[in-house]
């Protein structure tokens, strides 16, 4: 189990259940379409049934007392380069008059029917009473995409709780706050 902590900055809506259900339905995970062009998709899922793509995410699936529990799902489809190259070459031999880009696009469409996207589900635990959130992942790119989705969905910001953030948010006296803001590295041994 690996996770990052975030502070959630913003005010919760009054009619929280209705508001969150609506927000989640707008940003719910939508799978890649077999005939589409996109190679990536992301959105919210219920942690209990992350692959039931047509179900709405209702409050009994994400709200547990003062805790919101959700899944953040990312799907990505990629085509093995060597396979793509070989199929394109084969097709170009059969139809030498065809443009390479057109052939490649047709081969990709065929492969898309045969290859399943790679799916990643990351659990999100949001403690409403403490305005804190735990994201069970660490990868920088994923974290950035998650931050964006969270802010778009809930209209609230999240701030990663690294040690400088924890220190700045701690209840130190005004004098200490001043000291903290001007603090420099302590040299143990010179490099």
């Amino acid at each position: 189990m690996t996770y990052l902590r975030f502070a959630v900055v913003g005010t919760l809506p009054n009619n929280l259940i209705e508001n969150f259900e609506r927000a989640l339905s707008v940003r719910r995970f939508v799978p890649l379409h077999p005939e589409g062009k996109d190679s990536e998709t992301a959105g919210w899922v219920s942690v209990q049934n992350p692959y039931l793509d047509d179900d709405r995410i209702l409050n009994d699936q994400f709200l547990f007392q003062e805790r919101v529990v959700l899944g953040y799902r990312e799907d990505k489809i990629s085509y093995p380069k060597a396979l793509l190259r070989d199929l394109v070459e084969l097709r170009l031999k059969e139809f030498p008059d065809k443009n390479r880009q057109v052939v490649e696009s047709a081969v990709i469409s065929e492969l898309r029917q045969r290859i399943l996207p790679k799916s990643k589900i990351v659990e999100v635990l949001w403690d409403l009473s403490r305005s804190e959130l735990r994201l069970f992942a660490r990868g920088q790119g994923l974290v950035e995409r998650f931050e964006k989705l969270f802010e778009q969905t809930f209209q609230m910001r999240i701030k990663q709780l690294s040690y400088p953030e924890i220190a700045l948010a701690s209840q130190v006296s005004l004098r200490s706050q001043g000291l903290l803001e001007n603090l420099n590295e302590a040299v143990i041994f010179g490099a």
Binding site: T2, Y3, R138, Y163
Partner: peptide, 13 residues
């Protein structure tokens, strides 16, 4: 315990 991002990894409770 990771110093740079404050994360916890490999947590076994």
């Amino acid at each position: 315990l990771n110093a740079l991002d404050g994360s916890l990894s490999g947590v076994k409770t």
